[in-house]
Amino acid sequence: MTAPVAPTAQGPGLVVNRLDRRFAALRAAGRGGLVTYVMAGDPDRETGRRILDGLPGAGADVIELGMPFSDPMADGPTIQAAAQRALAAGQTLRATLDMLADFRRRETETPVVLMGYYNPIHSHGVDRFAADAAAAGADGVIIVDLPPEEASELADPLARHGLHLILLAAPTTDASRLAAILVKAGGFLYYVSITGITGTRAADQTQVADAVARVRERTDLPIAVGFGIRTPEQAAAMARIADAAVVGSAVVERVAAGDDPLVLVRDLAAAVRAARS
């Protein structure tokens, strides 16, 4: 259950963990995957734990576990509010890692990607964070405000501990930047489908399809599309275009409303699984 440790940090290609196995299995099965985002500790630790526990059974192929931050600059109002709820309920980076370790006692196969902003990790210490995240059972890390130019200081410790640093590409990313991103990208490439913040508007499917095709020409990495995917129909459309669809704000909205977010996750999963058949 411990993620395999690469002997030396010579690049993201050396890391192989649950994330790689899951995307390989999805490709072998010929279906797209569902990546669901939840904010750790939202609305409180116990509810957050129950939601996390329920995600694999509801059909999440990959889980993004949000690490709350006081100043989430790339996020829309839904994720901002979730972070504030979690922080108000006392969530910390340590608590998020403990929550993951607890989850791993029951669930050993579903990959978990920690997603957040750099400052809490910087504050924790990058080496210590990489070690602690690996020990907790994480498979990858997405840091929204850490572009490839600044990524080495975190990418190297993560690689040493068998974790992927997942990088993002956006509609504004041109070919030369994409090349630089792909050199450092591990796990999967997160394609941001809109120029905007999370949860605000829907992507144009034709544009996304073109963009994903351009990325495909340059990499074998799985591609997950996120930002602005809210409904089972939209998720299914993206799962036809890319290796996986990421749904965040729509799930988090259910949490905010006090509803069971797993109902939506089941609908999303059913749509994604049926998308290519």
């Binding site: 600059m73 790339a74 750099y118 929204v144 405000d145 850490l146 572009p147 130019e149 600044e150 990088l167 993002l168 590409a169 956006a170 509609p171 504004t172 990313t173 041109d174 930047r177 991103i181 941001v192 120029t195 905007g196």
Partner: peptide
């Protein structure tokens, strides 16, 4: 440095 989301980098 430059610590921003990829959408902003360009």
């Amino acid at each position: 440095g430059r610590f921003v989301a990829e959408t902003l980098m360009p």
